[in-house]
Simulated scan of single mutants.
Amino acid sequence: MYHNSFSGTDCVFKEFIKKESTFDSVLEEKWVKAQRNGIFRYVLNIQDSKILEGKYQFLIQLNIDRGYRRRSPENITSMNQLFNEKQFNFTKLGSEEQIMNLDNKDDIIAINISPMEYCHSLLLPQRCKQLPQIITRYSLFKAIELFSLSSSSYFRMAFNSLCAYASVNHLHWHLYYLNWRMLLEYIDLEEYAGPVQILEKYPAKGFCIKYSNVQNMDDFVNWAFLIINYLQNAEIAHNVYITRGKLSIVEEYKD
């Protein structure tokens, strides 16, 4: 497996850098190799993609294999559902699915064997602690840290809480490249408190924190975790999405 150590000099938060980072290169190399070696349940084949008409510009994709050949999701009935070692969990992954170690053997990146996009993988923080699918401050920091290693405008990370499309009750984040413009990259936001802004003119209401509005990574994580922890304690199912912003709808990707 590839071993990576994070340092401040690796951090990339600038927009639309043309040069691919070392992390991007290694992730793609390892992911493509795993696909070539037949580790996935299927070879990624998105038959069609379409931007829907309307002001939200939603993207829909046809990925028949993921619908029929992915592992059956775990039955999630509660935001406080405990980790169950008898269910599928990420301690049961084969070594061929594990493609990167991050600083230590307990924080790894593994391929998602039922991919929905290019280089679709999983960040598994503190994997051997067998934590349920509830964001910890540590896992949030690792997700932001990992995101900063990529210089790609197309790199995305996402977290689905219990009762919000999580299919495995074992702490994990999704990461992948999505080569499409998204409304969330340039949508208007309303001020709320401190660096926190509100996503109002969107079907799914939400909070937004821009890295440019905070002092450093610790500050960013503290504000984000304050919101996420409240949602978990209030048993409000939620999703977290990390992407680079754009200045306007007319700005083009530069790559």
Score class of each variant (00 low, 15 high):
T9W: 00
D10V: 00
F13Y: 15
F16Y: 05
K18S: 15
E20N: 13
S25K: 14
L27Q: 06
E29V: 00
K33S: 04
I39G: 01
I39K: 11
I39H: 05
F40K: 12
Y42R: 06
N45T: 03
K50M: 02
K50F: 07
K55P: 09
Q57D: 01
F58V: 04
L59A: 07
L59V: 03
I64R: 15
R66G: 03
E74Y: 01
T77W: 03
T77G: 04
Q81E: 13
F83D: 10
T91N: 15
K92W: 03
K92F: 06
L93M: 15
E97D: 12
I99L: 10
M100G: 03
I109P: 00
I109S: 09
A110S: 15
N112M: 04
P115T: 03
E117V: 04
P125H: 07
P132T: 04
I135E: 10
R137S: 14
F141N: 14
E145P: 08
S151D: 03
S152F: 02
S152P: 11
S153V: 01
R156P: 11
M157I: 11
H170A: 06
L171V: 06
H172Q: 07
W180A: 07
M182G: 07
L184T: 13
L184N: 12
E185S: 02
Q197P: 02
Q197C: 12
Y202R: 10
F207M: 05
C208Y: 06
Y211C: 07
V214T: 13
Q215T: 10
N222V: 05
A224Q: 08
A224S: 15
F225W: 15
N229W: 11
Y230V: 11
I236S: 11
R244V: 09
G245Q: 03
L247K: 15
L247T: 11
E251F: 05
E251K: 07
E252M: 03
K254Y: 14
